[in-house]
């Protein structure tokens, strides 16, 4: 790793400068993470009297546990649903806004602020709108003969949390897509237009392929968001229910650790989640390096 050619010479000053960050990192990141690794190999009995070392038994149990396998499935559906929904809506908005000249900034302002809304609040907002007894959408859906009740219908509960999570993420995707669209060379589009390609064809054969690096980047970011930052959406609304239908992995770690007090299993789940984050981060960084080097 490079430094400046000319640097300061000092025996202890650099360590002093690094100390605050490194100390906090060790106490609140590395130590807890290693604790999770260690605890994932232990099992406590029901009363917490005895702790035995069980090797990878906690992990083995997880993968034959129906609840955990279900949670994996739920997380997958949730992450894919949120990513697809928010990215496609954001791309549509970005393409439309990119056409505008005078009104571009005004539309952008209207579309970026949901980023500031906390996931928990986004959840409560949509929960209110979809509230089976007083909500406005169930009332409207009722006219089409659809009976909305996310308290008993698992699929509807899933749809609710996907909408809430995707809504908040639209602004983020929108900003990146817009930036990407603005960097598409205008000459390419003009050349295609001269060759007789229509709007739709120009978009799918020129603009969209040029956006693919950004699309890929956003996919990773959105999956990370859906998997790890949406705890609030779930906790403030469905609390994992009904019948485990929205019990995503992050929520399950919390539930098993703090409500169920099953520390060994919760730690094993933490370790699995950490592995997923590491893989996703590495993918993301690979991508950034490629983009910088071209």
């Amino acid at each position: 790793m490079q430094t400046k050619k000319m640097t300061f010479n000092h025996r202890w000053l650099p360590y002093l400068l690094l100390a605050p960050q490194v100390i906090i990192t060790i106490i609140f990141f590395i130590w807890p993470a290693s604790q999770a690794l260690y605890q994932s190999l232990l099992r406590q009995d029901a009363f917490g009297f005895r702790t035995t070392f069980v090797w990878f038994d906690n992990f083995q149990r997880l993968f034959v546990d129906d609840l955990y396998v279900n949670s994996l499935k739920v997380t997958l559906i949730f992450a894919v649903g949120t990513t697809l929904l928010s990215m496609s809506v954001a791309l549509l908005f970005a393409v439309m806004v990119n056409k505008m000249i005078r009104s571009r900034d005004a539309y952008t302002t209207f579309l970026v602020w949901p980023y500031a809304v906390a996931p928990a609040i986004a959840g409560v907002l949509w929960w209110f709108i979809f509230n089976p007894s007083i909500g406005i959408l169930p009332y409207a859906l009722d006219m089409f003969g659809i009976n909305w009740n996310h308290r008993s219908n698992g699929d509807q509960a899933m749809l609710l949390v996907i909408i809430a999570a995707a809504w908040k993420q639209i602004s983020y995707n929108f900003l990146f897509f817009l930036a990407g669209l603005q960097s598409v060379p205008h000459s390419l589009i003009e050349a295609a237009a001269i060759d007789g390609a229509g709007r739709v064809k120009r978009f799918w054969t020129i603009v969209f392929p040029l956006l693919s690096p950004i699309t890929f980047f956003l996919m990773v970011v959105n999956v990370v968001y859906a998997m790890f930052d949406t705890f609030g959406v779930i906790h403030a609304t469905t609390e994992g229910g009904p019948a485990q239908a929205t019990n995503i992995l992050v929520y399950k770690v919390y539930r098993d650790g703090f409500v169920g007090m099953n520390l060994g299993s919760s730690a094993a789940q933490s370790v699995i989640l950490m592995a997923i984050v590491v893989v996703l981060t590495v993918i993301q960084f690979r991508f950034i390096e490629r983009r910088v080097n071209y």
């Binding site: 490194v22 990192t25 590395i30 130590w31 999770a36 790890f228 919390y254 984050v277």
Partner: peptide, 16 residues
Amino acid sequence: IIFLTLMLPVEVRIVP
């Protein structure tokens, strides 16, 4: 060491 924090969001190592 600093880089590692990027990979460990609070939600993931919540109990410890």
